[in-house]
């Protein structure tokens, strides 16, 4: 592994658009090695898109993304394949393969990327499931799991290959407080135990702030703030304050752009 950089991921001047809609406009971001980085922002600002760009599932319209010092755009199919074996991703919905058991789901990346014997795979899968507390659930189908359990299985699958880097897409959405607490703990513990680099994309402020070393705030296709959770909390920038304090109206307007309400209500009906 090449340790020439402290940043596991560098995003340089990346722009991305979907049709007419600009999702990212020339953003720069670095994700430090061995830390938990939170990327936050209002819903619909393309946070998941950012993860897809890092995972090379989407290609940026301009700019470069470097993973572990290597530009994604310079990798061929094989390079991407190898790069992805170093990346884990926890999807918003868990994204377990519904036709495979819990065991097979966790074993899936091992079977794809390694040639281990069946016994080895079994041991690794059980260890990973033990780490998320679900060793007893090996034979269940994903449809038999609760939402929180499914996400933990998905986490076990994401760490099955002992990746260097793991991305969490909205890990806290739709979880009850207990499941949420379990997940927050797991993410933090895994990061220090496995020496991971983690990225959490979320709009759950308190949970993300509690485990992240570094936060990015994005809105309208730009990075509007970055810093440690404390720095952001104490910021004077009205845009940051609005998001951090959850105020309904401010620089990010409550109203969707429209003509003046009085004019529309009282004006001539056409």
């Amino acid at each position: 592994m090449n340790h020439h950089s402290d940043n596991f991921i560098e995003i340089r001047g990346v722009s991305f658009r979907r049709g007419e809609r600009v999702i990212f406009d020339n953003i720069d971001m670095t994700i430090p090695r061995g830390k938990v980085t939170g990327i936050m922002g209002p819903s619909g600002t393309g946070k998941t898109t950012l993860l897809r760009l890092i995972g090379a599932q989407l290609r940026p319209d301009a700019g470069q993304i470097l993973v572990d010092g290597q530009a994604l755009s310079s990798m061929g199919r094989k390079g991407l394949f190898r790069m992805r074996s170093k990346m884990g991703m926890l999807f918003q919905s868990g994204a377990l393969f519904t036709d495979l058991t819990v065991f097979e789901n966790v074993a899936f990346p091992l079977r794809v990327h390694t040639h281990l014997s069946e016994n080895m795979i079994r041991d690794i899968v059980l260890m990973k499931l033990q780490a998320v507390g679900l060793r007893g659930a090996t034979d269940l189908m994903p449809s038999e799991l609760s939402g929180g359990m499914a996400r933990r299985v998905a986490l076990a699958r994401a760490i099955a290959l002992d990746p260097d880097f793991i991305m969490y897409d909205e890990p806290f959405v739709g979880q009850d407080p207990i499941a949420m607490g379990v997940l927050v703990n797991l993410i933090r513990k895994l990061n220090s135990a496995l020496n991971l680099t983690s990225v959490i994309v979320s709009h759950d402020l308190a949970e993300t702030a509690s485990i992240a070393d570094h936060l990015y705030l994005i809105a309208d296709g730009h990075v509007i703030a970055s810093g440690s959770p404390e720095e952001l909390q104490n910021s004077d920038d009205p845009r940051i304050r609005q998001f951090m304090n959850g105020e309904p109206d401010g620089p990010v307007p409550f109203h969707y752009p429209a003509e003046d309400v009085r004019e529309q209500l009282l004006g001539d009906k056409r």
Binding site: R84, A95, T98
Partner: peptide
């Protein structure tokens, strides 16, 4: 379609398949 909606296709791609 459901596999796509539940991100199974994406996660498969991320795993490298």
């Amino acid at each position: 379609g459901l596999m796509k909606a539940t991100e199974q296709l994406s996660s498969m791609e991320m795993i490298g398949v």
